[in-house]
Structure formats: structure tokens, C-alpha cells
Design a binder for these strands. Structure first.
Lengths: 221, 221
DNA sequence: GTCTATACTTGGATAGAC
DNA sequence: GTCTATCCAAGTATAGAC
């Protein structure tokens, strides 16, 4: 059996502990999606991961610690996806198109459900609010910057501050997840995005330079 | 002590049981606001109400039953408030103004926090989703109708379907509550509403008939 | 360092006292 | 009709085996 670089940088080698650690994070993510914060107990998560419940406390100190690691994982993963997708976009219509196609992914895969669950849980567990807030801030920041980017050379830029639009987009995003998840019907969310795309295209046409209507998907991740 | 109409219609007389029942509902609402769904246990709620824990099961069959009664209470109360406030509004700018001033009430008082907590809880507790969905539907319906009302004689009406706008408004509403609650900062929410009001006033000015900029508060409740 | 068995706490629910 | 005492299930956390 070839073992590449025993004394090399720690990042590469996968110890047994690292494997269970990852299994626990994955199981925590799935559990948050399916059962929300209140349903994400040590026993349920550990069962799903197929490991002993006590390992959560060994690897993450507490259930809360594990859930935060899960939030980190989802947040990092999705933001990488978003960054690469938004890269090269330069009109409001394109941005709406890209946001729309990615949100569809998120709703289907339940990525935002993890954020929603953790924000909800922040109300319950002392000290969690601060930690979750730290991890949500990049989302509003990212949205603000993306909006600012396409608004810079548009006449809309002077009407709507990117700060407010970024906040609104993330809020809308979270709210849509809640409503969609609640009655299992994606149709209103889809219709809303179609609507937004149409409107953005129209405004882009009226206004300045930009304006290809259809988004590029940005498959790279 | 005067006891009006002992044999009269049941609605008026307040039995001891009714009082406890109401105390429990009030305590459940406050507990959902402060500690979220996961923190709303029978013992915590009963302690807050100053009654024995077992009474929850006597009066409401289960904790879930009590929480749904609490949701009903908040939902009914707020919708009465909304209805009376929107009554007489006939321009988009006015509507945004009214919505803005009431949302400020809601954020301060934590009314929407109860909705958010229950929607989050719906992911956890089997069967709860359906019940919560039933109680949230009137909100999107109300928003849709309010939007449709002011959009009817506006040129915007043909651009944006009230259905989608209503859905978006409720989603935005829930998302704003989450973000605001999370980092305890009302400023972004306030700024967003100021922004929306400004934009609606502008669009109203460009477009059709309506357009007094300032909302009436609709103090009656 | 990794994992298991076990201790302890809290929560939902009910039988029966008042 | 109201409340208490109590049962059992589920939760977090740790002491100690490997």
C-alpha cells in the first residue's frame, strides 16, 4: 500500500478521525435540512452518520460546535459556487438570471434550509446568535458587492443603494426558502424569479449599456 | 361583586379555566419570541405562565396544540391590525408607507418572530407543517390582495402580477425578521423601507393617478 | 488518539389526588 | 375542572476502555 508523504503537510493524509469528522458534518447538514434545528440532536445526527453519539463531543465539543461546522461547510461551498457564477456578469438582467438559476439549485438541494435552521436555532441557544451572525454576514456582503458591480454603470445605481438591495436579496432568499419549504411548492418562487428577470431585462433595455437577457450558468465549482 | 349574566352567552363569562388557557397562550407567544421553537418546551412555558406544566396537556392536548393556538392568536391579531391600516390606501407609495410603519411595530414587538419560529418548527415536528401552512396562507393572500388593490389603476399593474409581489412581500418580511433578530440591528430594515418608499413615490409620480407620499398610520386596532 | 458505555438532565405525557 | 406526582423517552455530556 502506497502512503504518499507520511511526514508531509497534514492536509493530505486522511486519518480515521478526519473521516468520522467529515461523516458527522455531512450527517449534520442532512439532518438540519430534513428536521430543522430542533430535530438536529446528537443521537439523530450520529445515527445518520453511522457512528457513536459520543464522538460528536470528542470531535466538536458540543452539538452546537458540530452544527456550526456544518454551517461553515455549506456556507463556504455555496459561496464558492456563487462567486464563480457571478464572475463575468455585468448587467442587472444577467445577475438576476444567474441568481435565479442558482437559487433553484439551492431550493432543490436544501442548502438555504441549513442557514434558515441555524438562524432559527440562534434564538434558542445562548451564544449561538453571535456565531451564526458572523457566518451570515459574508452572504449579505457578497450580495451587496454583486449588486454594486452591475449597478455601477447603470442609471439605477443612483436610485437604489447596493447596501439595501443586498440586504433585501438575502432576506428574500431566506423567506422564499421558508415559504417554499413550508408547503413544498416551488412554483411561486420560480414565478417570482421569472418576473424579476423580465423586469430587470426591461429596465436594462431602457437604461444604460448592459443588457444580454439570458444568464450564463457558470457550471464550474 | 357583580357577575353579569351567569346563564348568558358563554362568550362573556370568564371561567377560571379560560383564564389559565389565556395565560398559557400569552406565555407561549412570549416564549416563542424569546427562545424560538426549540426553546418552547412545556415546562418553560408553564413556568412563565405561572401554572402547572400538566395543564398544557389538559387544555391543549399537546405542546404543539398550544403553540398552534399561540400562532392563531398572533396571526388573527396582526391581520386585524393590517386590515384596518390598509383600509383606504390607494396608491403604491401609501401602501409601502403603511407596510413600513407596521413592520416597524412587528420587529419591535416580535410578532413576526412567532411566525418565523413556527415555520422553523414545522421542519421538525411531524404534521405541524400542514397546520402552519394553513395559518400562513392568509398572510400571502392578504398581501396579494393589498398589492392588487393599489396596482389596479396603476401602469405597474401590467408589469408585475400581484400574486408574485404578494409572495415576495411575505418572504421579504420573514427574511427581514430573521436577519434583524439575528444581529439585533434594525437599521438595515429601516433603510430598506425608506428606500422602497422613495422608489414607490417616484414610480407613482411617473405613472398613473395615485400618489400621496406619506402614509396614514391607521392607529385603530 | 479514537471510540464505547454509562451517568445525569430535561422534556412530553398521564394517572390519579383534590 | 384543576393540579400534582410520577413514568418513560430523549437529550447532553463524560469517564474510562481500547
Amino acid at each position: 500500500m502506497v502512503k504518499a508523504g507520511v511526514a508531509a503537510a497534514a492536509a493530505v493524509r486522511t486519518t480515521r478521525g478526519e473521516a468520522t469528522r467529515q461523516q458527522l458534518i455531512d450527517a449534520a447538514i442532512e439532518t438540519l435540512k430534513d428536521h430543522g434545528y430542533a430535530g438536529a440532536s446528537a443521537r439523530v445526527i450520529a445515527d445518520r452518520a453511522g457512528v457513536n453519539q459520543g464522538l460528536i463531543f470528542y470531535h466538536f465539543d458540543s452539538v452546537t460546535g458540530l452544527l456550526l461546522a456544518a454551517l461553515d461547510s455549506v456556507s463556504d461551498m455555496r459561496q464558492a459556487r456563487y462567486s464563480s457564477a457571478v464572475d463575468g456578469v455585468d448587467s442587472p438582467a444577467e445577475l438576476v438570471g444567474v441568481a435565479s438559476s442558482i437559487l433553484r439549485e439551492d431550493l432543490d438541494a436544501g442548502h438555504v434550509a441549513v442557514l434558515v435552521a441555524m438562524i432559527a436555532g440562534a434564538a434558542t441557544t445562548p451564544g449561538l446568535g453571535e456565531e451564526v451572525a458572523k457566518r451570515i454576514a459574508p452572504w449579505t456582503g457578497f450580495a451587496r458587492d454583486a449588486v454594486a458591480g452591475v449597478l455601477a454603470d447603470s442609471p439605477l445605481g443612483s436610485l437604489v443603494p447596493a447596501e439595501s438591495v443586498g440586504f433585501a436579496v438575502v432576506a428574500l432568499y431566506l423567506g422564499m426558502e421558508m415559504l417554499t419549504h413550508l408547503d413544498g411548492d416551488r412554483a411561486p418562487a420560480t414565478a417570482l424569479f421569472d418576473q424579476a428577470l423580465q423586469l430587470a431585462t426591461l429596465l436594462g433595455g431602457l437604461g444604460g449599456a448592459g443588457g444580454t437577457a439570458m444568464p450564463k450558468d457558470g457550471e464550474r465549482m
